[in-house]
C-alpha cells in the first residue's frame, strides 16, 4: 500500500561484527595507516581538493569504519603531486599509502 511516505534508511554506522580484513591488510602493508590524527593538512593543501572532492583524512577514517564506498571514488581525483606528504605532521608517506589503498580496494588510479 502506498501511504505517500515510507521508512527512512538509518544514517547510523553500526560497528559490530565488523569484518575489516581489508583495512587489516592495508595496515600490514602500510603501518602508517593508523597514525593519522585527523588534522586536515592534507586536505587543505591538496592540489586536486581545491577543485574536486579529495580528503585522505576522510578516506582513512571511512576505511577503518568500513563505510568507504562513498569515499573511495575521491582517490581518482588524486594527482599524486605529493604536497600532502610534505605537510603531514605525522610524517605519513601519503603517496605510497594512496597507491596501496588503490591496490587493496581495487581503485584504478
Amino acid at each position: 500500500m502506498d501511504f505517500g511516505y515510507s521508512l527512512s534508511k538509518s544514517s547510523t554506522m553500526k560497528i559490530e561484527n565488523l569484518e575489516n580484513s581489508k583495512f587489516k591488510a592495508l595496515a600490514k602493508l602500510e603501518p602508517d595507516a593508523t597514525k593519522c590524527i585527523g588534522c586536515g593538512c592534507c586536505t587543505a593543501s591538496c592540489s586536486a581538493g581545491v577543485f574536486a572532492d579529495m580528503s585522505l583524512r576522510q578516506i582513512l577514517l571511512s576505511l577503518q569504519r568500513d563505510c568507504q564506498d562513498k569515499y573511495l571514488p575521491m582517490l581518482q581525483n588524486c594527482m599524486l603531486c605529493g604536497k600532502c606528504m610534505l605537510v603531514c605532521p605525522r610524517g605519513i608517506n601519503t603517496r605510497h599509502l594512496i597507491l596501496s589503498i588503490c591496490k587493496i580496494y581495487g581503485i584504478e588510479q
Binding site: F3, G4, Y5, S6, L7, S8, S10
Partner: peptide, 14 residues
C-alpha cells in the same frame, strides 16, 4: 508535515 512522516514512522520502527 507529510514530507517528514517517514521519519516519524522510522523512529517507532527502530
Amino acid at each position: 508535515v507529510k514530507a517528514n512522516r517517514g521519519y516519524s514512522l522510522s523512529n517507532s520502527y527502530k
